[in-house]
Design a protein around this nucleic acid. Structure first.
Lengths: 341, 341
DNA sequence: GCAGTTGGTGCGAACGATTGCATTAGCTTG
DNA sequence: CAAGCTAATGCAATCGTTCGCACCAACTGC
């Protein structure tokens, strides 16, 4: 049988409560006693039983992470960063994927609650705000990431999609480009909408109308990217710059450019969304908008920990629900060049 | 306060034990009573408290997954598949990354045990077999994946690295290639060793000596791939085929080929290890050795569930420790062609 | 020298489910 | 019809921690 706290208490010749407090770092315990208990625990190889601890104290040291999938680079980056941060704070990560299905998401959230998670980070569908608001009421911390939900009372960390797209487009404009193509995600996705808005706004400020001929929008798949680039090249041979705002589509689009013999940036200037390592290794290295997945994850964990640590004190009431944005950043490399040089 | 089993029992006018048994599907309960209890539970919105359940029954419905990172495609594929399979069986996944550090791995495994996981799937360093053997002794299921450890008593699911590399090389040979380059992982890694062995064996069978000039081995990074391809092209301009057996290096190598103006497969036939979606989108689509990550994951979960379900009955004693292999598969596409056509 | 602090420690009741054992009612069987 | 089953249910102990409260000794201040 495993070593229990009772064994430690007996070995250290103190009561169960004292042993518990000593190991938990309670200030009520004298330094001497604490040392004795810690020595006894170490000597016996004592390990806490989290189930018992969770049952009694209502703190599981478990945090749930809900996201669509792990294939998308932003998502697995976030998962990895969140996991590491949590681990260093003594928490473990329960990971669940939803494929963006609200029903799956709901069942997952309920199951996470069954396990008594102390908090949840949700890259969600936005359809289960009622549930996550219930979590908050029950003292379970919640942070939304990337996708907002107007009904959610939890803080939200968003990516700077509009500004990122604006900056990319604006950069093209500053280089003299006027015929700028756009491949992006669907209107139905937050990111698809916001990035397109950034593209359109930048053009508008420059006094340019959005030319539908130059815009292709569709699902987050590389197949779409492969089609989209062909469509665009056929439809607008006069295009001098292209902004690829749909991350997945890039994988289909780049090979398409290569096979058509389009040289970057000589024939076409290019900027892609999201910084995946190998875009830097491409020839030429691709200029990208880095959406800051790591920072998104870091901030999400920070906000979650604030909530967890403020549990009880209603102090957080004001700050919660606030929306944060992690700015996107244009990473200049070699895939874009001034027009007419 | 949350609804507890006691509330359900009272609502259904049965005892606590009957309520518990009814919801858990015990055969001791009459169909009628079961229906009553289930109705009461549904009516009250009862949700089990996993911490309490775990404490009493020693079953947490939690499974740990230990791996290096989530960036590598095989790893995040495995994580996603494992998570989905577990969820469909009523288990949740606690995910931990180790960066292949044995110390981190050890602490992670201990923490997983603290949380009372019912099982662990380990893509491990092989350095903590003592711990995982202890898990088995304590009734915690263990399955090793991808990396074996001679000291581990747990079943192991390995990839068919040697055979995959053998097949790829053999295929080149059958197409008439004789000067076949090799870019692979270090000797220190299982996969690096096995794949090189497959390459060397295939050559040997064809009566060809391994030519050190054609072999570059190094770390699992794309930077290494970028260097390696340059080295190889400089050193062996007569090379007609190249086997890229280091997954990460592919990301650095492909752009290198493009920039040197090497046409695939006209100037060089190419086969890469591990099937990442966009290799299929490349121009030309790249022939690959698919190591079967999904199948590895599926099999790992199967083996884990067998152990979990056999807990108590010592019946599994014989089967455990067995090693399984998921065969790699050559996926023919268009990046290799017969020599001299 | 006595009431009032303060700093440590122990007692014992939870937390919410599971489960071995006892119990009961309704049958069968000789 | 008594004894013996079986099927269904209830009782109560138990899992390992945590934490409110009571307690005690030593010290302070008047």
């Amino acid at each position: 049988m495993a070593v229990t706290l009772k064994d430690v208490a007996e070995a250290a010749d103190v009561s169960l409560s004292t042993a518990s407090r000593a190991l938990r770092g309670s200030p009520l315990i004298s330094a001497e006693t604490r040392a004795t208990v810690e020595a006894a625990a170490a000597g016996l190889g004592y390990r806490i039983n989290r189930a018992a601890s969770a049952l009694r104290s209502n703190r599981s040291q478990l945090v749930g992470l809900v996201l669509n999938n792990l294939v998308n680079a932003s998502f697995h980056t976030i998962a990895e960063v969140v996991q590491k941060r949590l681990a260093s704070d003594g928490y473990q990560l329960i990971l669940g994927t939803t494929d963006a299905d609200p029903g799956v998401e709901r069942r997952l959230l309920e199951t996470l609650a069954d396990h008594g998670v102390d908090g949840v980070i949700i890259i969600g569908t936005g359809q289960n705000a009622d549930l996550s608001n219930g979590f908050l009421a029950d003292g379970i911390a919640v942070v939304n990431v990337i996708r907002s939900s107007k009904d959610s009372a939890a803080p939200t960390v968003l990516a700077g999609d509009r500004d990122g797209a604006f900056d990319a487009t604006d950069y093209f404009l500053s280089q003299g480009h006027r015929v700028i193509g756009y491949i992006g995600g669907p209107e139905s996705a937050d990111s698809g909408r916001d990035r397109f808005a950034g593209y359109a706004d930048a053009l508008k400020e420059a006094g340019i109308e959005v030319d539908e001929r130059l815009v292709v929008r569709g699902p987050f798949t590389q197949e779409f990217g492969a089609e989209a680039i062909q469509t665009l090249l056929d439809r607008a041979p006069d295009m001098t710059a292209l902004f690829a705002a749909n991350h997945e589509s890039v994988f289909g689009m780049l090979p398409g450019l290569t096979s058509r013999g389009i040289r970057i940036p000589d024939d076409l200037s290019l900027i892609c969304y999201e910084d995946i390592p190998w875009l830097e290794m491409w020839h030429p290295p691709i200029t990208v908008v880095d959406n800051g997945s790591r920072q998104l994850a870091e901030l999400a964990v920070d906000l979650l920990m604030q909530q967890i640590n403020n549990r009880g004190s209603e102090l957080g009431g004001d700050r919660i629900r606030r929306t944060y944005r992690v700015g996107a950043q244009l990473v200049h490399r070699a895939s874009s060049r001034p027009l007419g040089d």
